[in-house]
């Protein structure tokens, strides 16, 4: 394998534009040619999760038209990866050709850390990052994609890093896409527990591989006036 596709996702494009560059850098350092998927913008998860299946279908079609099923597709997001890799199977594509294409694409889609550890079999990327870092596992990454070890393995390989543990770190941050604005009171209550625990951990930086979690946790930290930053995993792994 010498070429991969990179889909940076809509949230990253709009709010965390460095994620694409950082992900590409990591992949290139491994000798891979990176093709950016620019003719698709969103995988359709936001529509799918809300029950708007025809809109989700449209976006899925668009996404599938943009990519080459013969080449791995790297996505720096646990939830977008699970949307494509898992939930595209639940979309009622109307013709056999699309269904077949979806079946061909789904297994080619990898969340970044899973791709690095499981496919490329690397754990040390020569990254260097100074500071106390808390890793926040995103729910979809852990429970839909079953990636519990990979991000930690990669972070442990970063030089200078000091990993700190957040109590109950596997508990959801409360983002949940539109849940965060439809039920702000519940989302906020979950977030405030998360923020308390992060503050207790002594972390200077919270790292996650989902921009949704970064928005939620970052927004909560900023609101609380905490001097703790959020960073995408790719940024840490690309840092030297």
């Amino acid at each position: 394998m010498n070429e991969v596709q990179l889909f940076s996702t809509c949230l990253a494009e709009e709010f965390f534009p460095e994620v694409e560059r950082a992900s590409a850098t990591i992949l290139q350092r491994l000798g891979l040619k990176v093709r950016l998927l620019k003719s698709a913008f969103c995988c359709g998860q936001v529509a799918f999760n809300e029950g708007f299946r025809s809109e989700a279908l449209d976006l899925a079609r668009r996404f599938m038209a943009a990519c080459d099923p013969a080449m791995p597709i790297i996505v720096p997001s646990g939830s977008c990866t699970s949307m494509i890799r898992i939930f595209y199977a639940d979309l009622p594509f109307e013709d056999a050709e699309l269904t077949a294409k979806a079946a061909a694409i789904r297994p080619q889609v990898y969340e970044l850390s899973q791709f690095l550890v499981r496919v490329m079999k690397v754990k040390r990327l020569g990254a260097r990052f100074e500071g106390a870092v808390a890793y926040h596992p995103s729910c979809h990454l852990m429970r839909e994609l079953n990636a519990r070890e990979e991000p930690m393995a990669l972070l442990s390989g970063v030089e200078g890093i000091r990993l700190v543990e957040v109590r109950d770190r596997e508990e959801c941050c409360g983002f949940g896409g539109l849940f965060s604005v439809k039920f702000p009171h519940i989302s906020g209550a979950m977030l405030s527990d998360k923020i308390d625990r992060i503050r207790q951990s002594g972390a200077q930086v919270v790292v996650s591989n989902d921009c949704g979690c970064l928005m939620q946790i970052g927004g909560g930290l900023s609101r609380a006036g905490a001097d703790i930053k959020v960073r995408h995993l790719a940024e840490i792994l690309a840092a030297r």
């Binding site: 709010f15 534009p17 560059r21 950082a22 850098t25 928005m215 900023s222 609101r223 690309a238």
Partner: peptide, 15 residues
């Protein structure tokens, strides 16, 4: 309940 990230498409933090 929390702050909103300022959108900055095309303006990544320097690598």
């Amino acid at each position: 309940v929390r702050d909103f990230p300022a959108p900055r498409p095309g303006h990544p933090r320097p690598a």
